[in-house]
Design a protein around this nucleic acid. Structure first.
Lengths: 220, 220, 220, 220
DNA sequence: CATGAATGAGCCTTCATTCAT
DNA sequence: CATGAATGAAGGCTCATTCAT
């Protein structure tokens, strides 16, 4: 029932699908899965109320498609080595990783609901998360671990590298996740391009400082 | 006939209120505000379906009461200076702050839905957040800023202290907020008392390392 | 959810329940379970659209209640020994059984949708049928088998009695089940009280004739 | 340009029509007219979703075609004089009529949904029934009346012959129509070829016994 | 011609809230 | 006062049918 032939790729069908995905990512990001209504999504996509069922089966499958799609797009637009020279130092790679990460989750506008959607997924994980972690988050974590390994020196064990990696990532995510509190506490903070660059700089320096001191201690 | 004294609070009425608050904190934490149903809450509280409207006006006012209550309780149980000797060093105070914070958001069981509820509030802030930030989060932030100031030395400006404070806090919140990803990525991680203590130790050491290196650089 | 306390028996609640049952038996009889709409039922019962859910859980449970209720009522109104003198002959008992059966399935009006509903159940059995067969049809069959046994004589085996019993019952049900064809084929046939009495007479005589001839053959 | 000859019937088109009819008879028999979905039918027929509207106008016209077709096929396969020697006695003709009737309504498999469909038609007659009664049932009834007339003797009036005919037919239809109850009441009953032959034998003997006794009484 | 994407009416169900008792 | 039966709006989903290609 409602099975969609995936091969022929009718351009008209594809357009409706795309509008639906875009509208859905908007609504899901704004109000979450539960509160989102199929009616609202279809209205924004200028599609019929039955379009969701026809193209995606049901609301949940639409959500999964949206989550996967926004993840893919965001990682394509802001990869871990965003704007990095070929032979970069570990310090440069860390800075790029942090900056790209910040841009990725704070970027707004069409096709950029990745941050909001993932934050909601953290609070209320759905079955869609497993695939995301395996396919997208895992590789990202590997990249970071490699950078952290270079900075800590070969003496660091796997556990320490993991924890230090998370100490970096946590600082990035914090500003997105706790934005409601941060803006209330410090109304002067801005999250525009300049503000994000300052944030990236602080996080990088803070982390590099920690790594330096830690590796120094380890060596002795 | 029969003037009703509004203050003395019928003990039966107070008990129902308490049961309602407890049940509601459970349900709100489990499924969120939207998905929570008044029926479910009243059933768990063994109260009448109309009890919520009777005691709290409506679902939203019940939610606000729950949020405020869980926040108060959690801060009472795990204050910023939890288990700290009177004349503690800044290092000890940071360690206590971090550990207490972790315990506060990870504590489970009756009366301890604070972490979950606040995480939901971050993703979808309600009007109740303003009061929480002003009355509870603000003082907490002040305590941390003071600790960080002591560690960074007097040379640090307000901005830097703020950012460094958030670098500390972010590491704490990360494990709660991103738990679904963390447990998928590193299934060996545990969040029992021992695991939390290890986490507290890492976060403290990582942050102290950063502070040490930063203040060293600053002095020169 | 929607659990209804069965004890207190609020008269107002009971009235709504009754109206719902009556309206539902009408609609289910007219158009069947699938085609029946909760809206239509509630409108006829002058109840709110949500009343079905509140009182019966869902459409299916309402249907089960209707089926059981109409069956009970019909068997109470037209028992197997309807209008029979205390010491009746087997012939009289057969005639009463047949006549009562015909009246039972052909009776119209409020509380008498039994025939239609059972006919639908035959074509598309639901889970409700098992209970009906066990509790209502079984005992009825036992009564008939006893009558048939008396008429066939002790020589008849259980199989033969069963088959002969069904030969009687089949003639009764036929006129109800195949009424659309019968009335088209023989437009003069009527199913009013007089017509039903004639039918009862024919079925009884036809069956008695068969029994007489069969038992005669058996004896030799 | 290109006048389209409407008669010659494109063989591909005819095949689709045939597949549609076969699939539709399956689905209609299984779940009834209302519950049957055009999608399901087209999927089973491996035809396009619009094929029903294209070939038959709408769902209802498809249903009418199916009903008429299954009736025609069933009567062709199991005529009233099925397997009868040229000069058969009335007793033999009755036995053949009964047996053929049973086989007709109990036969399963492709092209044999006649019994189920007619049973549904009895419970919820559609406009298609009039034609069926006139063209198929009527002639059948005439054949039976003739047989019954031979068995009752010339003294029987038209009314009696009609009623006796229906007493025969009713016994045949009962096992099909009330199968859900019969199998629940008597789980040992089987409706395979052997079981049906036993049934035919009983019905024939029961009816012949009745006729014999009735005609005996009449003559005196 | 034959297709299948799109339509929109309508169904069952859920839920916060109200109000007579 | 405290209850719980009743309300009605709204949501997700299904389905026969249509129409542009």
């Amino acid at each position: 029932m409602g099975l969609k032939p995936s091969q022929p790729e009718d351009p008209a069908q594809a357009a409706t699908r795309r509008h639906l995905l875009e509208a859905a990512s908007e609504v899901f990001a704004e109000v979450g899965f539960r509160a989102a209504t199929v009616r609202e999504i279809c209205q924004r996509a200028e599609a019929n109320i039955a379009a969701v069922n026809y193209h995606f089966g049901d609301k949940e499958h639409l959500y999964r498609a949206v989550l996967k799609e926004t993840c893919r797009t965001a990682l394509e637009k802001y990869p871990a080595d965003f704007g990095l020279p070929p032979k970069a130092t570990p310090e440069q790679r860390l800075r790029a990783f942090v900056h790209s990460f910040l841009l990725r989750i704070f970027s707004q506008g069409p096709g950029s609901r990745h941050g909001k959607l993932m934050a909601r997924e953290m609070v209320e994980p759905t079955g869609a998360l497993d695939a995301i972690v395996k396919e997208d988050v895992g590789p990202m974590a590997a990249v970071l671990t490699s950078i952290v390994g270079d900075l800590l020196g070969s003496s660091a064990d796997a556990d320490k590298k993991r924890l230090c990696g998370m100490s970096v990532v946590s600082q990035v995510l914090f500003y997105h996740h706790c934005r409601p509190v941060v803006t209330r506490l410090f109304p002067t903070m801005k999250f525009d391009a300049a503000g994000i660059e300052q944030l990236a700089e602080h996080i990088t320096q803070f982390s590099l400082a920690a790594f330096k001191e830690i590796s120094k201690g380890k060596k002795k």
